[in-house]
Design a protein around this nucleic acid. Sequence first.
DNA 1: CTATAATCGGAACCCGAGTTCCGGTTTCGC
DNA 2: GCGAAACCGGAACTCGGGTTCCGATTATAG
Lengths: 205, 205
Amino acid sequence: MRTVDPKTGAGAAPAVVVKQRADARRNRKRVLDAARAQFAEHGVEAQIDDIARAAGLGVGTVYRHFPTKDALLEALAADRFQRLAEWADEALAEPDPWEAFCHFLRRSAELQASDRALSKLMSERESFQGAANEAARLLEATQAVVDRTQASGELRPEITAEDVAMLMCGLGSSCGPHGFAGKHGMGWERYLDILIAGLRMPDRN
Amino acid sequence: MRTVDPKTGAGAAPAVVVKQRADARRNRKRVLDAARAQFAEHGVEAQIDDIARAAGLGVGTVYRHFPTKDALLEALAADRFQRLAEWADEALAEPDPWEAFCHFLRRSAELQASDRALSKLMSERESFQGAANEAARLLEATQAVVDRTQASGELRPEITAEDVAMLMCGLGSSCGPHGFAGKHGMGWERYLDILIAGLRMPDRN
DNA sequence: CTATAATCGGAACCCGAGTTCCGGTTTCGC
DNA sequence: GCGAAACCGGAACTCGGGTTCCGATTATAG
């Protein structure tokens, strides 16, 4: 029987998964779900043991599916990037460019602020080895939204997708549950409002 | 001989330091300097051993002056907060309120972006036990600058000192040497420009 | 100069968290 | 059903990094 290299399987492409036992597939999902929750709540310092317990499994099982803590993190990151990229695509389909742009930012901000680990990963990790493709795709999709909004004359022309990513990273770190804003009972909305005002063409504000 | 409780001595108030041997005083400063450099470069995960080596001292010496890694971090944080607060005070003395406000932000941003540990501390730490006073003073001083700038009609009226702090925390995490911006070769200037535009009264942009 | 106490250095200790290992269990093709 | 191949659980291992300890060293009072 051909087995799947866990390293590859842990990445994103669900393409070549060959013949995995039913319980294994089920448990992989459990691990992923538990890990997402734990990382979101405790940040990257969430412990594998806790993830395993939350998933109702042993640590060994976690490690069989994801050879390393980093691999697990990357798998989740890839997931997130993918979702964000989808949202960017959806924004392209909305009628009003500026509205779409804001909506995209709003959804992203909400996601970022609710997940302590993700923002840290995005703003701190040296590279997203396992999620590099997804990250690139997200940036691309974001650029499309930026371009469209600029074409409508509502967004400053010098803004790039990288700027948006950078700003959203900042939002994640300072508005997350353990960030400065979180500690002072402020929401990410304030941050986003200021940011959006800064991005918009001066004559439209 | 009355000895100084290291815990107290490690804080900020240099008031009651009674009779410390000259070499001890000298070494304390060395530790502080080395720690500042190491933390700035490597973030909070800089190691005590490395700090000691950089200071040309043994680890024991470091621990005699600062009973814990956290205490050391707090001492440095207090320092930083104090400097920032001074800058805020200086801003109050500059003639043009808006210029002064921007200058203050610019200096702060530069400091934040150059120090990996500081921004993490500010945006992530549960509480600044040892630096709580300094943090409060900084917030107060910042509020004064904000008030003055708002009075001049150049800064949006709903902005608070907390907003400014939150935004600068975000800048620190995403524009530091290891943040998103740093990895993409972007500077903190872009971030700050957008931010300032978002803070300014719409009719002045 | 000498005594004494503060200070220094760094090897050793400790502990937490990621990772490995292997006997027992479950699934699936025949 | 049956047996082999996967898979599971969780105790045990490893290792890095903060912290402690104590004999050697050095500064200061008298």
